[in-house]
Structure formats: C-alpha cells, structure tokens
Design a protein around this nucleic acid. Structure first.
Lengths: 211, 211
DNA sequence: TATAAAATAGCGATTTTGGGTGATGCAGTC
DNA sequence: GACTGCATCACCCAAAATCGCTATTTTATA
C-alpha cells in the first residue's frame, strides 16, 4: 500500500485526488492540504511515500514546499503537478528535488500509474516536459570537447593557478620559476585564448575548459 | 505522413520496424540500415523526419551516427533505442542531440506513439530513463541558491561585466558612471565575496553564483 | 643530430588594479 | 529629524598586471 499525501489549493481537485487514491487498492491518502505551509510538520507522522504537489499555491508554493520536504524527508518521492509547463518552474522543481512532473491534464489512471512508476524508481513525465528537461540538461552541460586552444602543460598549470585566484608572484613561487617566466606564459596564454586580461582568461577557462 | 529511417544491426528487428512503419498510416519507412556508416550520405535524399537509432551497432555506433546526422540535419528527430540503459549512453546520446530514448522492450504501438510525440515537439522516454536524465541534470547544475553574498543590484551588474571580461574603464562607460565608482563597487564586492582580485571574484562568481 | 617547440628569464614602459580615506545626495526607516 | 544603506565621485599611492622585445636552455622528435 503506497501512502500518498496531496498538496493542492483547488478544493475540488484535491477531493478528486482523494477519491482517486481511495479507489485504487494500491494507494492510500494520508494527508491533503491546500498549501505548503508547515509541510514538514504536517508530514511528520504520516510515513508517506509519495506526494502529489501542485506548484501554484498561496502562501507557500510547491517549489518551496518541495525544497523543505526533501531536506527533511529525502526518501519521499514528489510528483509535481501543474497546469503550465514553464522552463523556470521545471528547472526549479528539479533543483528542489522533484522526481516527476505531471500536467494537470493527466487522466486519473495516469496519476495512479505515475505514482507506481515513481515508487519503482522512475520519473514519470510527459514527453513535452521531458523535452524541456533535456534542453535544460544540454544548456547546463558545457561543451568540453570543442576547444583545447593548444595550451602547453605549463600554460595549463599557470591558468589553473590563476583560476584559483593566485597572483603572478604566487604562481611563480608555486611552480619554482621566476615571475618573468609567468609573465611570459601569461602572454602566450592570452594570445592562444584571444583574451587580454586575467579575468577574461578565467571566465573562458571556467566556461569551456578544464578546471 | 512522417518519414522515418531505421538504423539497427539486428536484421529481424529491423524488418519488424519496417513492417510496423508501413502498417501505420501516419508513418512511412524511407531507409533502413544495419550500421551508422555514411549515415549522412545515406540520408541525403530521404527528406526524413525521424530516425529510429540503435546504439549498439558495429563499425559506427548510434551515438556517433547521431552526432554526425544532427550536425548535418539538425531538424531531424532522433529516437535512441537500446536494450540497456546505461548512464554513459544516455549522457552521450543527449549530448549528441537525441530527442528521445526508448527501451527495446517498448511495444510496437509505443514506438509509433513515440514517433508522433517527437514530431510534435516532445521527448518520449520511459520513466526510468527520465529519472536518469534528471539525475544527470542535477549532477550538472551547480547549487545556485546557496550563497547570495548580499550583493546589491549595482554590484551584481559590475560583477557580471567583470565576468564578461570588461575592464574597470569599460564597465564605467557601460554603466554611465565614473571609474572611481567602479573601483568603489569592486572594493565592496571583494569584501563581500572575501576575495582580493578580479580573477578570484570571477572564479567564485562562475562557480557558485549568477552568470 | 638538426630542428622545432616549450620553458625559462630579463628589461622597460604603460596601464590597470587594489586599498585607503573621505564626501555627497538620495531613499527608506525608526 | 537622526540614522542607515546605497550609489556616486575624488584623490592618492603602491602593487600588480599587461605588452613588446629579446634571448638562453631544455626537451621532444623527426
């Protein structure tokens, strides 16, 4: 028997979910709340497994509630439900620790299916949501392979230390060479990266290379 | 009529897909190949919309083929199909530009559904795959919320421009203030971030904050 | 071994930066 | 009205960084 709690501000919808959960012989409703206030306290003694979480709620919204719940009960699976699928919502929901993302247009049996999926380790979501997740993923994966810039080993070391916030003098000390050597390396690094300052070099290095 | 091409080394499976595509009145098979060699050339005159791509293939595998095809025909939707769901596979498939990820256990009607989903802008995948995508996403997203450092709006702007590689002078020009004002902001930024140079500030900013 | 690439180093000039100190105006708040 | 935070600006100074040019030693390698 899967223990499910509901956070949903729409009374009608909330009751629909309650009935839905009670009809299925695999699920059981252990709580039903109109907003995210004191979510952690409300869940304290429910031993719940899955939460149906609306995003748009008054006072404390679904994202905030998800963050709080996941912090206290990381084992609980949270299924986000929303009428809209906005990039920002999805991004924040994922960061907050949501395990699935349903649209409110999902049919009743789809909700039960999703609950079963999520407890067996899946992340149910509509293909349209999945596309957005993939896009988010790709925008967050830096393109590592693109450019090597043909930096030599020593140049890479110098750049690394620069990224670590070291000054020329400190880098020279660390690499047992003179400060003028570091200057030389920096000149070469700037030429290879097509930049003209340390900050630019660091920004570029962090954005698309090593470190 | 959706034009679909198949890359699949298993002859039996390949033929099954061909039949499946011909049965549906919404799809049409425009090519069927046992490996990824010369994929781009093979697709040249097919005007295909969707590709069913196996990962495990001899000579040129599905990931490599996907990369090549996406480079030449970015508008083509590629549905990866594999018997295993390995993190590395999924990661590389997404990076290569795959739009969906099916397991070979998917039923015939599921494949047709997935093709329809993908042309309408979705990314069909099983919940178990979706979970892995989410995990990959989270492992690639730096924790943004942690630290705000209480930077003021103007300080954030200055920092942003610094990260963009601008000098004090350029930042001053861009924000229509004097260079001494920028220095002032920089002093405050350094104090708040507990750093002592632009490179350190940029490294910190890129690692765990805005930008 | 001849050659090229990389790493090392130095000098000099100029610009940029980091820090110190202080001051003004403006908005909000108690 | 006093107080505070923010943004603005100024002046000074020393340290750091940037850039140009040159040059030697080491290392890799064809």
């Amino acid at each position: 028997m899967i223990r499910v709690a509901i956070f949903e501000d729409n009374k009608h919808l909330r009751e629909t979910y309650e009935i839905l959960l009670s009809i299925s012989d695999q699920t059981q409703c252990v709580g039903s709340f109109p907003d995210g206030r004191n979510a952690v306290a409300k869940l304290k003694n429910t031993a719940c497994d899955v939460i149906l979480m609306d995003i748009e709620m008054p006072n404390v919204n679904g994202i905030e509630a998800t963050t709080a719940i996941k912090k206290e009960f990381p084992q609980i699976h949270i299924l986000i439900q929303t009428a809209f699928f906005d990039d920002e919502y999805i991004f924040h929901a994922l960061c907050a620790g949501a395990s699935g993302y349903l649209l409110k247009s999902t049919k009743p049996e789809g909700i039960i299916d999703a609950i079963l999926e999520v407890v067996s380790g899946g992340s149910p979501m509509t293909p349209s949501i999945a596309r957005k997740v993939i896009d988010l993923f790709k925008s967050n994966v830096q393109i590592r392979q693109t450019s090597e810039y043909n930096l030599t080993n020593q140049e890479k070391k110098v750049l690394q230390l620069l990224v670590d916030g070291k000054s020329y003098k400190m880098i020279a000390t660390e690499l047992f060479v003179s400060i003028d050597t570091i200057k030389s390396h920096m000149r070469n690094i700037y030429a290879k990266l097509h930049v003209h300052s340390g900050t630019e070099a660091v920004a570029l290095a962090l954005r698309e290379k090593i470190v």
